[in-house]
Design a protein around this nucleic acid. Sequence first.
RNA 1: GGCGCUAUGGUGCAACGGUUAGCACGUAGCCCUUUCAAGGCUAAAAUACGGGUUCGAUUCCCGUUAGCGCUACCA
Length: 499
Amino acid sequence: MNDSANKTAGTRVRFAPSPTGYLHVGGARTALFNWLFARRHGGVMILRVEDTDAERNKPELVQGILDGLKWLGVDWDEGPFYQSQRTPLYREAARKCLANGSAFLCYCPAEKYAGGDYAEPAQDEEPKGGGPRRVTRCSCRDGKPSTPGVKPAVRFKVPLGGTTRFADAVFGEREFSNEEIEDFVLLRSGKGEEEFGQSMYQLGVVVDDIEMRITHVIRGADHISNTPKQVLLYGALRAEPPVFAHVPLILGADKSRLSKRHGATDVNMYRAEGFLPEAFRNFLALLGWSPGGDEEFLRTKDLLGKFSLEGVSRTNAVFDRPKLEWFNTQYLQKLPIEDLLPEVEHELKRSGLWKPEWAAGAAPGPDGRDHAWFSRTVDLLRPRIRLLPDFSTWSRAFFTDDFLRDPAAKEKFWKDPKVPELLAKLADALAALKEWNHDACDHASRAVAEAAGVKAGLLINATRVAIVGQAVAPPLFDTMVVLGQRRVVQRLRQAVESR
RNA sequence: GGCGCUAUGGUGCAACGGUUAGCACGUAGCCCUUUCAAGGCUAAAAUACGGGUUCGAUUCCCGUUAGCGCUACCA
């Protein structure tokens, strides 16, 4: 065991989503980085649901977030923990801050410091003399007689001078002036019988990260300016801050923060569309991180072998869907076939086309099709597939006899008046074949075309439409082999009749 | 408004003081060809701007500009 392995042996990281929305790609990427880091170092991954805002919190969204993570292959060792169930911990911490003088009771109305007040330059202010100073200190901080009937909030008493610094594994040493940090709220004021309300974000995060012994906080760069507040809290609670690693944000095509108007931002929508999770993961990993060289096709085991915080970029990245699609087609083509088969099986089950005899180890069906056939067929199809559902739609004729011939394809390739006769002759020729393989089909077909005095392409294209109903399909003779003699002959004859 | 972060082709990344600035997506063309993909080859396309430091800056420093983030009893 080497030294660097020892240093990170106790690695503990967490992903802390808030159930105010679905799992968006930015969160997914953060989760992935945490997971890669934990797994890479033999550490522990913790899942923590930050649901302290009863107003905005939508408990029904939690399951979707967990599902999204599982689909991504991000699993966790501890949790999910729910902050809404850990309130006593936060209140205790707040009392501790109150007791040691690093927090105070605030009786101000909740709206007093709401954003916007000092954001606009005051009317009567000199236009250029710089805007009004931001108010960062609460008038209650030096003690104020309690207002009868008003329940106080607990605010952190930010030091009047000096700076707060921390080390960021991605952005380097950071230092913030305490003057810029407002006396932020730790605990909401109580409602009803309760003396205090629920924890605010900063307190919950720090208390939990301490209690869960988090060693590395890997999160979005939107939290950089929250970090000094949290570092101050660590001090007040007499705990050592973890290593912070802020990762750049993911933007839409117009470089603004990724949102619905840029298209799908919900990870589960990509699952529904039929992206392969490993392809999605590969794509996501390369948004804001690079192994240093030019390799891009990095399977999960490669990511696990290469991931490091040093490779994380400091610049925001645009989510480029065409590249994601490219990754998906690459995975569709390059994956060992046995890694792809379960995904296709799942898709065919979803669309109702699956037959049990195609499962590994199952006995062949009445038409002789078995797992080996399934594997060959998927292998034949996959270079032309873009998304998993294409196996059920575009490739339908390979899995069921219940398929339709695309009118546009007929229009394009059945135009020539000689087609019906050609197809009929081909059906006879193929029916007579003793052997059923690529070359036999090839020779028989070309012979029919030659005898009729037409180009092979004419017959080939017309036949494709006849046997799979599409203008686009895998190479014809390979397709014939996979479909089998009986089906091909039958479909040819049926095509002649139906025309 | 204040504070902070960032800045390589349209996009994602390389180059961590010395390269004809590399790779990939996308785009265009060619090849292959049995449709469509895939694949192969080629092309157009970038160091935001201005100052420094240095023998030498994409790289280090400062300023400008732009984008983004934070500025809630949201997280």
